[in-house]
């Protein structure tokens, strides 16, 4: 089930014209995660920083007796750090990392809703007009006057992995 879910997260539109997603806000942008990979939405928990870890996954939390990494998409998308608010949440998702199902917490400034996005409204990431790394974005979906970004989680997490040795070599 989870493996399937993660596969779908890569090519969301392969099998269907619509997907169920959970939308959340980060900075001034709205992101969406495919609903099936979302395990739980938590209030903020005490975090334990991991000295020496990459800033993108700088801390761990206790999620139901498991120690899971907490990732901050803000850093991957170059957004300024912000204080936690009353709306801040942690979205726990399950990902397949190197063939192993892994639970990861994602920070969110505000969790909005679960909704359905359609294939027609989606577009690949534009080649211009973006400061972000294009491979971090799976697609952009137009919704009303706004855009929802579906991040490419696989690239985000494995990309972070592949950069690690280079950082260590310094």
């Amino acid at each position: 089930m989870s493996a399937l879910a993660t596969e779908q997260a890569v090519g969301h539109w392969k099998h269907a014209d619509e997907i169920e997603v959970l939308t959340f806000d980060m900075g001034r942008e709205t992101f969406a995660l495919e609903a099936v990979i979302v395990q739980e939405i938590l209030d903020l928990l005490p975090e334990t920083p991991v000295p020496g870890a990459r800033p993108f996954v700088a801390s761990v939390i206790n999620f139901r007796g498991k120690v899971i990494p907490l990732a901050d998409l803000r850093l991957a998308f170059g957004m300024p750090a912000a204080e936690a608010t009353i709306d801040s949440r942690i979205v726990v998702i399950e990902l397949l990392l190197d063939g192993e199902p892994t639970l990861v917490g994602l920070r969110a400034d505000k969790v909005n809703e679960t909704t359905t996005l359609t294939k027609e409204a989606s577009e690949p990431p534009p080649s211009l007009g973006m400061r972000w790394r294009p491979d971090y974005i799976d697609c952009v979906v137009k919704r009303g006057s706004d855009f929802i970004i579906i991040p490419n989680l696989k690239a985000l997490f494995s990309g972070a992995d592949s950069r690690a040795p280079a950082a260590e070599a310094n």
């Binding site: 020496g52 996954v57 990494p69 990392l97 190197d98 990861v104 997490f157 992995d161 690690a164």
Partner: peptide
């Protein structure tokens, strides 16, 4: 509890 793969590079723990 083991640490996740994302923290494999941190050998201190």
């Amino acid at each position: 509890k083991s640490m996740s793969k994302l923290h494999n590079d941190v050998a201190t723990f």
